[in-house]
Structures are given as C-alpha cells and as structure tokens.
Design a protein around this nucleic acid. Sequence first.
DNA 1: TGTTTTCCTTGATCTCGATCAATGAGACAA
DNA 2: TTGTCTCATTGATCGAGATCAAGGAAAACA
Lengths: 240, 240
Amino acid sequence: MNNPKQETKLKVRPACESCGVRALCLPVSLDGEALSLMDDLVKRRAPLKKGDYLFRTGDKFKSLFAIQYGSMKSYGLTIDGKEQVTGFHLTGEVLGMDAIDEDVHHCNAVALEKTEICELPFSALEHLQNEVPSLQHDLNCIMSREIRRDHHMLLMLGSTTVEQRMARFLLNLYERLQKRGAENNILNLSMTRQDIGNYLGVAFETVSRQLAHMQDEGILEIKNRNIHLLDVDRLEAIAG
Amino acid sequence: MNNPKQETKLKVRPACESCGVRALCLPVSLDGEALSLMDDLVKRRAPLKKGDYLFRTGDKFKSLFAIQYGSMKSYGLTIDGKEQVTGFHLTGEVLGMDAIDEDVHHCNAVALEKTEICELPFSALEHLQNEVPSLQHDLNCIMSREIRRDHHMLLMLGSTTVEQRMARFLLNLYERLQKRGAENNILNLSMTRQDIGNYLGVAFETVSRQLAHMQDEGILEIKNRNIHLLDVDRLEAIAG
DNA sequence: TGTTTTCCTTGATCTCGATCAATGAGACAA
DNA sequence: TTGTCTCATTGATCGAGATCAAGGAAAACA
C-alpha cells in the first residue's frame, strides 16, 4: 500500500539493471545472452533497515553483495571487545570479497540507513565465469578495485595530523560519490561522528572540532550530517 | 663466476617450484599438466638489489609479481611530494593486483634488500584461466587474501595509541612470517624506523622509543633490525 | 682501512589531540 | 505536545607524542 509505484518499478526492472553491478565492471563485456544469465543469478532481497546486519564475523561465505542503494559499515572486534570500523561502503560498491579465500566472513557488515542489496551467489558466479570468460576478467577488475581502494585508505590513515586524515577522508568519500555520478558537492554522511573517529583513529570530539574548524575556514558547511564542500582545492591542499 | 653453485641450482629448478606461488594458492588445484603450463608461463628475473624498483606509479601493468625471497615496500607520493608508505611485502606474497583494473600501477614498489622475483604475465595467466578453471578460483583466492590483509592493516591503523599500533604491526609481521613457516620468534625488519613510522602515521623517533619501551618491559629484545619477540601474549594483550 | 653517509637512539620542549564533563539538538515514540 | 533516546557540539585540563637537537652506531663506499 505504501509507495506502490516504487514496488512495481522494482519488480519490472531486471535485477541486474538496478543493482549497480553493471555500473561497476561487468557491463563492458556482457552481451545479451550473458546478461540474462546474470539476471537469473542475481537474487533480490528485502531492503535492510538501519542497523540490520548483512553478515557477521564467522558466517559462512556464500555470496558477494552489491549495494544497490544505501550505505553500510564493516567492522571487526578487538580482543577486548571493542568495535573497530574497517570501512564504509556506498551505493554501487561490492562487499564480501575478503571472504572468498577462507569461505568465512571476517567482519560484520551493518546497514547505516535503509539499504537495498543485490546478492550474487558466488559458486554460481564462478560457474558462470566458465561459460563467459570475459566475466572472469571483470571479477578480477572488481577485486583489483577493492584492493586499490584499500591501499588508498591505508594512505589516508598513514598521516600524523588529524586535519590531514579528515581531509583525505572527506575527499575519498567525495571521489567515490563523483564516480557514481553525484552532481553536487554535498556529502550525506550516513555514519556517526563516532564511527568516523573510530575509523580514522581519532576521538569523536576531535572529528567534531575538526569539521567545525574547516567550516570556520570556509572550506565546507555543516548541516547536521550533510557536509557541503565549498572549497575542494583547499581540501586537497590540506590532504597533501 | 661469483656464486656459480646457486646459478646452476636456479636454472635447474622449475620456475614455479621456487617462486612461492605454489605455496600461496595455486598448489591445491594444479595437476601435472597444468603445473607445467604454469612453469612455461612464469618468468625468472635477475634478483633486485636493495633500492631497485620493481615498478613505479604510472608504469603499464603487464604482470603480477611473486616474491620468491626478500622483501619490498610500496609507497605513493602525496601532492606535496612526500613519500607515503602503503605496505610491506614479504617472501611468498604477490604484488601488483591493484593494477589489474586500470592497467596501470598506482604505487612504487622498491626492494628493501636483495630480492628475487617471479614474474607472472597477466594476460597469459588469464588465458590459462580458461584452460584450467580451477586456476580462476585460485586467483580469486589470492586476491581475496590480499583484500583481507589490507583490511587487517586498516584495523591496525585505526587505533589511537601508538603502543597499540606498534604491537599490531609487529604481530602482523609475526603472523605473516609464521604462515611462511618461520620457526622462531625473530623478526628481521628490512625496513627503516622511518618507513615504519611513515606507515603507522607516527614519528620515527616514537617508533624507536616505543620499541625501547617494549624492550624495557621484557616483551622483546632489539638487536639493530632484529626484533626477538619474547612475550607474544603480552603483545597481543596490548594490541587488543 | 678510514671516511662518509645513513640510520638509530636519547634528551628536552611544546603542541595537538585525548579525555572528562556538561550542554544542546534532532529523532522518535507515546 | 512532552519525554527519552542517541548524537553532536563546545569547554577545560592533561598527557602522549611531534618536533628540534645532538650524539652514537651501522653500513656503504672508496
């Protein structure tokens, strides 16, 4: 009853069209037949609500997950039980690739807002790789991209000043949104200051202060969780 | 003339036997025939001397590289030209996977000591994937492992205290060496304190002091670049 | 072999950011 | 509305770690 229009729309669209996978790496190579094979493979899922888990540490690995709409965070637990955020994942990105090797998930993935997911059962995906050789290259590309993204993050965290880490963090989000076709300079942070701080190895008060300082400098404008980037060049200069 | 014995030995050994690839992921699945196909594929290279580059940012991507013996560091440059270390790579690990996607290397890889490398031409590898379907899964595994390794690093850097980062760094090296069959608790650091500090986002003096402090506590023993881990449990407790 | 260079350690000072604490602001439910 | 969350901001204090500086120890080189 509520929002029937969207419901219909979702059902009519082929799953793969809407899940963002095509926009990642697969599109270049799949012809009509292969595409329909992919469509058969992809599973739709009920949307996750904020706080819902996609998988948890120790869960058996069965599928990769592409974020169709929304955002997630992944985190592990330290020995003393503290949460340690290892990444934020946006629309169009793929989760679960770190589990292929040992067949077990090594982190928890939780939705930061209402999030729609496409499930890609991995064994079927690997079978399809045999039929469609180009798919194999595509998957290599997706994983390569994830590796590069992580290296980028490592680069981000390997800085001594918090100002620099913060700038790199914001630019990183900005670039990822640009790649997905965002047309404005507004970052809608779905994660808390606490999550950001945890991720950057910084107290959340410091995150808050750092953002306030950047606002004073005219680099950005804060409206709750919406960050409007006013001066990307300055931000890049700070990032180094 | 110098060291003729080793020369001969290298020529006689099948390339793949000695390059560490088998020990990574490929061994489980390759039968005799596929193995010899791999042998044809792998290129031997003259060993790198300390300071030699394996590839640089912007180089065209042609091959993956497996470290047969030795160690390397990879780093990028910030806009203001400062070096930013993104990783250290040990015997048996594979470099270059972040370049598959865009066909270009995104970091510099330099040898930290005398290092022997096996080159795996990637187009040939992908062709071989078609002939040997299991190889495809193996490659997925290798990349998955790299992703997990990076996540582990991110977890390491997302800590506020230097003591914790240092502990996690040492444990990370320790575990990687253990996996490669190291039988003692001695870490032979081939990188400088400066590199470690850069990597951990910490001044190199702090690295030095932190190690000294851990030595005072009886957790480890420093002999130049050899770190003897005396109390791994304590180290793990610190790492959290 | 001595010389140069690079790397490591240790000390002293000062700043940045962690921590503690209190208030303010949205979000959500009843 | 009002109350109760959780989340964010801002202030004050204190300590960890950056930075500057100088000396020592390896390692590289001639």
